Simulated scan of single mutants.
Amino acid sequence: MHPQLCQKMVLTAWLGGLGSALILCSLTLKLPKCGHREVDNFFCEMPALIKMACVHSKVMEIIVFSLGVIFLLVPLSLILISYVVITQAVMRIKSAARWSKVLNTCASHLTVVTLFYGTLIYMYMKPQNSSSQDEGKFLTLFYTIITPTLNPLIYTLRNKDVKRAVKRMLPVGKWSAKS
């Protein structure tokens, strides 16, 4: 990849994230709040703050949905399109070993993509008043902690050296001998 293209992509990502955050934060903080309320979540996430408002803001819902399309559905579509191209290339491979290696690599990546994008799309691209607070907490926990924690496990446990190291560290034989 050409360094200038890389810089433009990074700049686009940073400015897009900063711009959307500024828009959403400023609009969310302007919503009227009913009395003294506490955020019933692990952190001040935008859907939790919107639910604290006294009014239902159709404008906020449209903005969140639009940004969800831009920042969630467009990248997910590009990932899925790339997998269609990969699948077409794999179909031309005659070797079964290469075929399974490519599919294993793709399967682990698609697992991570599904876990991450699935929870984010469910959280941000549905009407704000259609989910419970506990459901929001679970999804927040899932895509901020569980998915990033599973990500290295999903990728590294496929590595043969890592598998051997884990087998050496775990006394599997000791537990089965005592049972």
Rank of each mutant, 00 (worst) to 15 (best):
V59S: 13
Q4G: 00
P148E: 08
G173R: 11
L157M: 15
L110W: 11
S20D: 01
A177K: 09
I86G: 00
A96K: 05
V162C: 13
K178E: 02
G16H: 04
S131K: 06
Y83F: 14
M169N: 04
A89L: 06
H2C: 02
N104C: 06
M60Y: 04
T144V: 11
L115N: 05
R168C: 13
C44H: 10
V90I: 14
R158I: 04
C25P: 03
V113H: 09
P171I: 10
L15T: 12
R92L: 15
K51N: 12
K160D: 13
A13N: 04
L78F: 04
Q4H: 00
T114G: 11
C106R: 09
K167N: 07
K163T: 02
A53P: 04
I86W: 14
L73H: 01
W99Y: 11
Y124E: 05
A107K: 03
C54N: 10
W99R: 11
L139M: 14
L18P: 03
H36E: 07
L153C: 01
L29V: 08
V102I: 10
V39A: 08
L110T: 07
V102F: 14
G35T: 07
S108Y: 06
M60P: 00
L110G: 10
L29I: 06
C25S: 14
K30S: 09
M60T: 02
D161L: 15
H56R: 07
T149I: 13
L5I: 02
W14G: 07
G16R: 01
V112Q: 02
M125E: 05
F142W: 12
P75W: 07
G68I: 01
A107P: 01
L153E: 01
A53C: 06
E135A: 13
L18N: 00
L29M: 15
K126N: 10
H36K: 08
I79T: 12
V90P: 00
A97H: 10
K167W: 12
I63E: 09
K101E: 12
T12L: 15
T149W: 05
I63D: 09
V90F: 05
A21Y: 15
R168N: 13
C34E: 11
L24A: 12
L67R: 05
W14V: 06
K126S: 15
